[in-house]
Design a protein around this nucleic acid. Structure first.
Lengths: 126, 126, 126, 126
DNA sequence: GTGGTCTAGACCACT
DNA sequence: GTGGTCTAGACCACG
């Protein structure tokens, strides 16, 4: 479990931050099918958060169908094809931008103007 | 104060919903400079929300430099040129998409793919 | 919130016990659409369980689409037709018996024999 | 010890899964009276589960009066008439459906409706 | 007042 | 060792 960053100052809940990062790692294929996740206790210690917080993250991952858990053994990355993951990825991205576009809809910007702004922002981020 | 819709079931706080709608009305020029806003009590009654909620909205508008308040008289739309507003509008839109793009950055989508998805979502919304 | 019984001695988790009883009350129409549930704190006090336990129950109900929650206001019974509920009810019953029948499948009982046993048990329970 | 299948992903504990399958083999007469069961270590290796898990299963079988153990020699299928087994079988099936019917009792389904659902589920399973 | 999040600490079932 | 459940107690955002 590498490259997980938790910012206490962030607005988004800690369990959500960890979820987001693990989910993207799974969907990018950085974590392989049936790979064992660290135990709840280990992850909690590593990331310096409460066991309960990690448990909430694991529950979220399980509800989203990304991992499965076996009592007394641990949690594993769920088996899936890359196509499944790509579909899930696109759905998530669509949701994000559905909300973003809806929230600025009332500003009455043309599609061209909007796409231009987004393009600029994209280049600034990357 | 027309065309303000409040959805209790929405995830976004009520004060934020009202703010978003008033802010866009101001920036679109639907509300003119120095125009008097309704009193907090009146607005609360009209929209059937708590006075505290409206108070929070008015504070947000004032902090964002969109209205100004005179003790004992009420709140007014701040004077500004259309250019100021357009700049503000674009800044806000940029902020929205900065956050959206950042949140999906880790999915490693190409710019082309991302712009394509956004284009599709835009057409679905409109 | 009447007629909720919690048995600490039971094998099933407390949050599950409460969920089961509330879910059946909703599906039987004892709790009407948009009716306000007691607050988490109130319910916890009434049933003498931890706030967290009730919260887990409410989350379950929300995940199953039976209630919806508004921050700062409370949780409400979700709007639904009786047909929706009947469908949900039958699905749940099917799941229960799918597991039961599967677990005794290897005893090689005929369908008639099995149905006869179930009929007897039903009469004993009622 | 043939035809034992262990599914790690199942909700039911592994020791319970093995118990269920052995119990039904005994009651169906596939395993004869006084037949020697494999040693705990052998069984554990064969089924690729922990020795502790098999130990728990053997204890369960012994408690249920299905096997008996001789220190230093091993565990044997207990002697019994087919009638004893049939009675035991029916008792077990009754227990399973007692719990199932109890758990859906609050849905207020008529006996006819319930039997119909069960009939449908039975046909789906077989 | 409401729900949302986070914490530490405990006991249990399963492997 | 593992995860599952329950607890009390705290702080925050929202109305």
């Amino acid at each position: 479990m590498k490259h997980i960053v938790v910012r206490n100052t962030s607005q988004t809940p800690i369990y959500q931050q960890i979820y987001d990062q693990l989910a993207s790692q799974i969907m990018n294929g950085d974590l392989k099918s049936d790979q064992l996740l660290p135990s709840i206790r280990t992850a909690a210690k590593e990331l310096r958060v409460s066991i309960i917080t990690i448990k909430k993250t694991w529950e979220l991952l399980e509800n989203q169908g990304l991992i499965y858990t076996i009592q007394g053994k641990g949690s594993y990355i769920k088996r899936h094809t890359q196509i499944d993951l790509d579909d899930k990825k696109i759905e998530l991205v669509k949701d994000v931008f559905l909300e973003a576009i809806s929230s600025v809809k009332s500003y009455n910007l043309s599609k061209e103007k909007l796409m231009e702004i987004i393009s600029v922002v994209y280049d600034e981020v990357n």
